[in-house]
């Protein structure tokens, strides 16, 4: 398969390597130094770095500016873009802005509802949904046209991704939903973090049955748990998250000062199991404010060194 864009992530995936991505959240202020340091720390251990877009609806420095910073550092950013805050004019405008800095990856998302964030009284936009954003980016790239139909000079050359949550309800449409995202134009998929590997395997079986793993690269998501408290919170409070009781028990079963190490160990074991799942094309490691541990996770999971591509 030949790459359709200059994206390094795309080249690695198309060359058949297991890709590794990670992500960084921008700061709640204009000092971008911390983000740059987090990204620098994982530079040699990941192929691309997602930059979240006002995640959980908490207002932060914009994903686009942070992506530009990473790009200027010689890193490979994945621009996360939610449809919650911008209409089709602003979305396409920001896509062009990213393209002007040769940002070659985009992840199209709905975005958490604003009630979770620090501006719960805000209006939401949802002019497009995440699938329609996928279609929009593909139209801009492949047809060189805006949604409105006018031609684009120097269209964006972006490798287009979407999120998938194998654990949300209703389970029966989780595979059809992935098919729909791929039909809408998704070329790579990053999944919700996986703690219930059996359930993920069931989902992947459905994915393979329909050959979807051959139409898009599926990056399995993992998040190392820092504590038993975090495990319980993820299990009980985060919608669409599936943390099995045995994971919570395992975390709670070790003394507090060793829970972080246990979380890393679980994460590495999960990655090793996921490597055996047919159709998995790579991993997305979301170490929330814990990016410094990503290199170790990558190494211990046998995913280092990262391949070089032309």
């Amino acid at each position: 398969m030949n790459a359709k864009t200059p994206s390094r992530l795309e080249k690695i995936l198309r060359a058949g390597h297991l890709a590794v991505t990670s992500e960084c959240g921008p700061p709640r202020g204009s000092d971008i130094g911390h983000l740059a340091a987090k990204a620098e720390a994982i530079r040699r251990h990941v192929d691309a770095i997602n930059v979240t877009d006002n995640q959980t609806s908490v207002c932060r420095l914009c994903s686009l500016a942070a992506c530009i910073r990473l790009k200027l550092m010689g890193l490979e950013p994945v621009l996360q873009m939610v449809v919650r805050d911008r209409n089709r004019i602003a979305l396409q405008s920001d896509i062009l802005g990213a393209a002007s800095f040769d940002i070659h990856n985009i992840l199209c998302l709905s975005g958490d509802h604003q009630r979770f964030g620090d501006h719960a009284q805000g209006q939401n936009v949802f002019d497009l949904d995440s699938m329609q954003l996928l279609q929009t980016v593909r139209r801009m790239r492949d047809e060189g046209r805006f949604l409105g139909g006018d031609p684009i000079e120097r269209p964006p050359a972006m490798f287009v991704g979407a999120a998938a949550n194998p654990f949300a309800d209703p389970f029966e449409i989780r595979v059809p939903r992935l098919a729909k995202k791929i039909a809408a134009g998704a070329e790579f998929i990053q999944t919700q973090c996986i703690y219930n590997v059996e359930r993920f395997e069931r989902w992947m079986q459905g994915v393979r049955d329909r050959g979807l793993h051959e139409k898009a690269f599926i990056l399995a998501g993992v998040t190392p748990l820092k504590s038993a408290g975090m495990a319980r919170y993820m299990k009980n409070k985060v919608p669409g998250m599936d943390v099995p009781e045995e994971v919570v028990k395992r975390m709670a079963g070790v003394p507090k000062d060793r829970q972080a190490e246990e979380g890393i160990a679980i994460c590495i074991e999960t990655l090793q199991r996921l490597k055996e799942v047919p159709g998995v094309a790579g991993f997305h490691i979301m170490a929330i404010e814990w990016e410094e541990r990503v290199p170790e996770i990558v190494e211990r999971a046998g995913l280092a060194p990262r391949p070089a591509v032309a």
């Binding site: 709905s110 958490d112 309800d169 729909k180």
Partner: peptide, 26 residues
């Protein structure tokens, strides 16, 4: 739909309920 998604549900749908709260149907 709290996000008026035309191609939903989003990843926040849990046991028939919306991510914004257990009183809201998905």
């Amino acid at each position: 739909c709290a996000k008026r998604l035309f191609n939903g549900p989003c990843g926040g749908s849990t046991a028939g309920k919306c991510e914004i709260g257990p009183d809201v149907e998905c």
